[in-house]
C-alpha cells in the first residue's frame, strides 16, 4: 500500500508541476510597470513651509534621528530630513498638528551621492523628489485576484 500511495504522490507532484506550466506570473516587471500606490502609503515626505508652526514635534518623535531642526535666518526652527536614516514610519507626519508634513506615495528614488539625501529645510520645502525611470513606465494598480493571487490593472 505504501508503495502505491508513494507512486500516486509522485505522479500528483509531477502532475501539479505540469499543471503550472501555463504561465501565470506574479512578478511585477519593475521598472517597465510601476505600481501606483494607494493614498496613505508611507513614502517620501512632503514639507510645507507655510503650514509649519515650528513646534519640533516631528524631530522629537523621529525614531531614527532622521529629522533635525534647523534654525533659520528668522530664528525659527524648521525641520530638515536625512533620508539615509529615514525608516518611513510616518510618525512625523502623524504627529504634525498642521499637516505641514505629509507622506506621499513616492518611494523609488535613487541617489548618486549620500549627501544628496540630506534635505535641509529649504531643500525639503521645495518639493518631493520624483523617481526617474529608464523609459515611460506603465502604471498599474495591484489587486488581489482569486485565480492568480495578485493582478495588475493598468491605470
Amino acid at each position: 500500500m505504501g508503495l502505491l500511495t508513494n507512486l500516486v504522490d509522485h505522479l500528483k507532484a509531477i502532475g501539479t508541476g505540469l499543471k503550472y506550466l501555463i504561465p501565470r506570473r506574479l512578478t511585477l516587471m519593475y521598472p517597465e510597470y510601476v505600481e501606483k500606490l494607494p493614498e496613505g502609503y508611507r513614502g517620501y515626505l512632503r514639507y510645507d513651509n507655510e503650514k509649519c508652526i515650528h513646534c519640533s514635534l516631528c524631530a522629537r518623535i523621529c525614531p531614527a534621528n532622521a529629522i533635525k531642526m534647523y534654525r533659520g535666518g528668522d530664528k525659527k526652527l524648521r525641520p530638515g530630513i536625512n533620508y539615509t536614516r529615514c525608516i518611513f514610519c510616518g510618525f512625523c507626519a502623524d504627529i504634525c498638528p498642521t499637516g505641514a508634513l505629509e507622506y506621499t506615495t513616492i518611494q523609488d528614488i535613487a541617489y548618486e551621492k549620500l549627501e544628496d539625501q540630506v534635505y535641509p529645510p529649504e531643500k525639503f520645502a521645495k518639493g518631493v523628489p520624483q523617481p526617474v525611470y529608464p523609459e515611460k513606465p506603465i502604471f498599474i494598480i495591484a489587486k488581489v485576484d482569486e485565480e492568480r493571487g495578485l493582478k495588475y490593472d493598468r491605470v
Binding site: 508541476g17 503550472y20 506550466l21 501555463i22 504561465p23 501565470r24 506570473r25 506574479l26 512578478t27 516587471m29 493571487g149
Partner: peptide, 10 residues
C-alpha cells in the same frame, strides 16, 4: 524557464 513558469516568475 520551466522552473520560473511553474514558480510564477519570469
Amino acid at each position: 524557464k520551466i522552473a520560473a513558469i511553474i514558480q510564477m516568475r519570469y
